[in-house]
Design a protein around this nucleic acid. Structure first.
Lengths: 228, 228
DNA sequence: CGAAATCTTGAGTATAATCAAAAACGGTGG
DNA sequence: CCACCGTTTTTGATTATACTCAAGATTTCG
């Protein structure tokens, strides 16, 4: 499963168009027909949809290292929007370059396919989280996911991390109102599950938070598939 | 984008292990490490997760023609379960055969990747549906999806179709209680949006239902991507 | 330092859950 | 063809979780 030296070099050789985007700016919008994908190099982003009533639902958070809209490589019209949460450094890669990379390096193609399958697994998990957990567990769960994913890319130390997500955005991610998110966060603090000040999240008792959020990291598929 | 004669023949040559399964039986379970994928040839199936509290969330419905667990080709451990809703005819395909097919026919690999991306788009849509719509619109929306997908495979005539899904299962799909689903279905009937008797769903006024469900079929990506 | 964004609090309301039981339906076997 | 059993649908009554609205406190950032 590990990529060869040749594969890795091909990735490094990809032409990247680097840009820095301010916080709270759309990167691509529902209905767009992008000709490039966006690699998130620094900062947080979110995928979201807006209903006819104007309510927003965030369907995934993205952190450094993610390629949020890889789907656009094979799906012509975007059915969802992508926007920054914090200021972001992004690198755009033209579809042509990616397609060529996939054609020449099947193992990279498979690895990218796999990444999109993990995205799908996260969407599924969110559906279950929102559909079948009460607010308290729902928020605990989403915090667990963020922490584990940040840890996987080295952005968590001792269960402390910076999460530039407002309560309003957590509300849009959990299908709750921001007022209720505020109250639940206070309850989580009162119960000693989290220490949250500004953007800094600290987890004094990981097992307790995990249990509160009914969290099983399997769906993040962080263990690499072993060679057959 | 269309597959060549050669590609199509290769698909037809796949060794399929055919089976018929009774209604309400698990096909694969969370935690499994399958060595094959399941093609749904007839009947309805559902992907679902169960929380620690024992509550079930259905994350997708599958209809004839779907390959629900294509993800297992690249993700070792299943993070979700798959079960039949009605009696089903399924064909199992070994991963090896699929992997070989992908290696030899890159266009098929891309098409299968695309299918998994559409699955992901559906999961996203469900997240938004459950997170940000009230019960009435939520159920209307899910009915719209089913009808359009059934139509795409020729299982709807004049907005009439057979849907072997119980109210309990709709409840698990929409994140509602079955009692509430029952009441909302009655409201939809009373408003003339649906005629539902037994498993037969009829839609007297498609535009009205679409509007009630805030339904935009873009996310189903039924239009084939045109050749570049 | 000041304006804007974010967070917090309180009060009243609404949507949907729960519990429990009855009615209707569907399939099976006699 | 009918009686019977399990499942599914329906109904009623009560409760709970979470929403809305509105205003005040606090933080952030230019």
């Amino acid at each position: 499963m590990a990529l060869s030296q040749d594969d890795r070099q091909a990735i490094l050789d990809l032409p990247l168009q680097l840009t820095t985007l301010p916080a709270h700016q759309d990167i691509v919008r529902e209905g767009d027909r992008p000709t490039r994908c966006c690699a998130l190099l620094d900062g947080f982003a979110a995928m979201f949809k807006v209903t006819a009533e104007g309510k927003r639902q965030i369907t995934a958070f993205y952190i450094p290292g993610d390629i949020p809209d890889l789907q656009s490589l094979h799906l012509e019209v975007l059915d969802t929007s992508l926007g920054t949460l914090s200021r972001c450094k992004v690198g755009f890669i033209q579809h042509e370059a990616l397609q060529e990379l996939c054609d020449r390096h099947p193992r990279i193609a498979n690895a990218m396919w796999r990444e999109t399958l993990i995205d799908a697994a996260i969407f599924r998990d969110w559906t279950a989280n929102i559909g079948r957990r009460e607010a308290y567990g729902r928020i605990a769960h989403i915090l667990c996911e963020l922490i584990v994913r940040l840890q996987a890319v080295g952005l968590t130390q001792d269960h402390v991390c910076k999460i530039p997500i407002t309560q309003n955005e957590f509300a849009d991610a959990t299908g709750l109102s921001s007022v209720h998110v505020n109250r639940v966060l206070q309850a989580l603090r009162a119960d000693g599950l989290i220490v949250l000040r500004g953007n800094t999240l600290q987890v004094p008792d990981w097992e307790k938070l995990k249990k509160a959020g009914d969290f099983d990291p399997t769906y993040l598929h962080l263990q690499r598939k072993k060679a057959a």
